[in-house]
């Protein structure tokens, strides 16, 4: 309940944050965004950083900027702002739908997109959505800026492609075409609200044909992962093929050794693997239903 003492550094800019991380690099230093991953860990004693660098005062890291081809979500944007963003719902609903599925309203008002994605909690909702959206993650470090495709970003439980001393500054979410569709569905833990399984889908269509598909899951594995066999089954398939969602979803664990599926007090690996198929099917059905319904039409 009571975090251990730490040195507190408030910064005004991303550059200052990078400098601060470097300056305290010889100590256990961590960035504070919304704090909804960090503070619970500090309260339970799982984390006791010596230095906390608070990004709360960095106005430039906050807000949603709509571009022509993509929408930029700056790192310190709260989940609620994403969940309520009409432009994102129109341009790529997988991300706001996942943001809306996080926790409860109080959590969504404080937790941040950057903090969530950079934490790579296996049961968080946004990572799968970022994979399905084919988002691009912007990082700033001592050597300057770089871009990391979401597909390369999530590496393991609580481990990402971010290097020590690097800061996630923004995420670009590409816009879908008018014939494309997306969905995020989730089976929440009845206790914690985190995802036992969450599946994100983006379908790009050409007429009745599925031209491209990105399907990713969180909750099931030690980090969010693309479900490549599902994607393979979908691409080239027809929207009119009523058996396609079930057939494709049935391949959700084809590439996965069973021991890789999480097994804990919340759910066994057998159940999670099964849920993964069920929720993949539901996500696919939802997305297919949305094709052409205008909910994600550009403009």
């Amino acid at each position: 309940m009571y975090p251990a003492s730490f040195e507190y550094v408030a910064v005004d800019s991303a550059e200052e944050a990078i400098d601060s991380l470097a300056e305290h690099g010889d100590r256990e230093v961590t960035l504070l965004a919304g704090g909804h991953s960090l503070l619970p860990m500090m309260k339970s004693g799982l984390a006791s950083p010596e230095v906390v660098v608070d990004l709360g005062g960095v106005d430039a890291l906050s807000g949603i900027e709509r571009g022509d081809d993509a929408t930029r979500i700056n790192a310190m944007t709260e989940y609620a702002a994403v969940a309520d963003d009409e432009g994102l719902w129109s341009d790529n609903p997988v991300v706001p739908e996942a943001a809306a599925a996080i926790g409860d309203v109080q959590v969504r008002n404080v937790g941040t997109v950057g903090g969530n994605v950079a934490h790579s909690d296996p049961a968080a909702d946004l990572p799968a959505a970022m994979l399905a959206a084919d988002a691009t993650i912007h990082a700033l470090g001592p050597d300057g800026e770089r871009e990391i495709p979401a597909a390369d970003f999530f590496q393991a439980m609580f481990t990402t492609a971010l290097a020590d001393g690097e800061l996630l500054t923004a995420i670009d979410v590409p816009h879908l075409g008018s014939d494309d569709a997306a969905a995020y569905v989730k089976k929440a833990s009845p206790s914690s609200g985190y995802a036992l399984v969450g599946v994100a889908v983006v379908l790009e269509t050409d007429g009745e044909e599925i031209a491209d598909a990105r399907v990713a899951a969180n909750g099931a594995f030690d980090h969010a992962m693309a479900l490549e066999p599902v994607e393979e089954e979908l691409v080239g398939g027809s929207l009119d093929d009523e058996s396609l969602p079930e057939r494709a979803a049935g391949r959700a664990t084809d590439d996965v050794e069973s021991y890789l599926v999480l097994d804990d007090e919340q759910a066994s690996s057998e159940y999670r693997a099964h849920l993964l198929e069920v929720y993949a099917e539901r996500a696919l059905e939802t997305a297919i239903d949305r094709v052409g319904d205008g909910s994600n039409a550009d403009g």
Binding site: M1, A10, G35, L39, K43, G56, V105, Q106, V110
Partner: peptide, 18 residues
């Protein structure tokens, strides 16, 4: 739960300095 700048938040998961 309290409101911070008009929005409900869980005040056990926010530092006072924030």
């Amino acid at each position: 739960t309290v409101h911070v700048d008009g929005k409900p938040v869980k005040s056990c998961t926010m530092l006072a300095v924030q």
